[in-house]
Amino acid sequence: MPTTIAALAPLLIGGVLLWSGSLKLFGRHAAAEARRTALAGLVGEARVVPAYRILGGLELLIAVALIAPPPLWIDLAAGAALSAGFIAYLGYAALAAPASSCGCMGSRPSRISWRAFARAGTMLLASAAALLWAPSIAWYTELSGEPVLFTAVLAAEALLVAGLSPEFDHRWLLPLRRLHNRLTHPLSGGGFEIPLDSTVTQLIRSGVYRHTAAALRSDVTEHWDEGEWRFLVYSARYENRPATAVYAVPRLRYAPDDVRVAMVDEEEGTTLLTMDTPPPEDSRPEWVLTNPLPEHVRTA
């Protein structure tokens, strides 16, 4: 059994390298992916794409040497060295550029996590096991000897590598999580209260707001509900004096056209403006495009 596991290591490592090397060399988004990796920090922005492709070529070369006969220990040593080098690179990337993509196997960006380390570690262990226990046993000889066991172990190892690869998450982990969410509804049961933000977005979509918002100086200072209305209060500056803007917004229905406003001078105790329907839009496509800007528009 240990010899079988060790003997199929070249096939497993070769397969993984074949996959990752081809994507680095021939992938449609290879150049973009290269720029997202931490390689740029090592070789410089200008050389990152050629370096990424050279690495892909090296991976392909080692993959072919591992899979094609004859079985040589030097191929396994090269595989082990590549895995060890990759672990070192991941360590550097995790410290120097933790937000960069791992640049490992897929055309999809995947961040550096413990799984990337575990996968590279698995590759290193497999190479070391083959070097120790089966440096000159050809995988195809083992396959013809024990085809069922060989295939089963290879499938299990391939599944392990896929499980450790965030690049494949969209194939199995994500559908599983979505199915789980569909069955358990973790975000349901929200109650019937209307969040304030729903009222604010309704207000913002109203014509009354668009015609008065230039006078506002603050975010919402105060709000309360009364009957079918929700009241939102802002600090404002209207006709060159401090004012309070009070908007009444329908609370339980979506009707931005019903929004109304009053601008109040609380010091004087006077209402400066009320508006329950916005003035009609004029024929100009965009009033803010007028040059110079209208006087009431404050340019920051």
Binding site: H170, G189, G191, P195, D197, S198
Partner: peptide, 24 residues
């Protein structure tokens, strides 16, 4: 937070229903 958190899906007005959020 129920009653406070709101969701905007594409162009819809904000609603309290979060059930359309998806993993991934």
């Amino acid at each position: 937070e129920n009653g406070r958190s709101a969701a905007v899906y594409n162009n819809t007005p904000a609603v309290s229903d979060m059930s359309m959020l998806e993993a991934g």
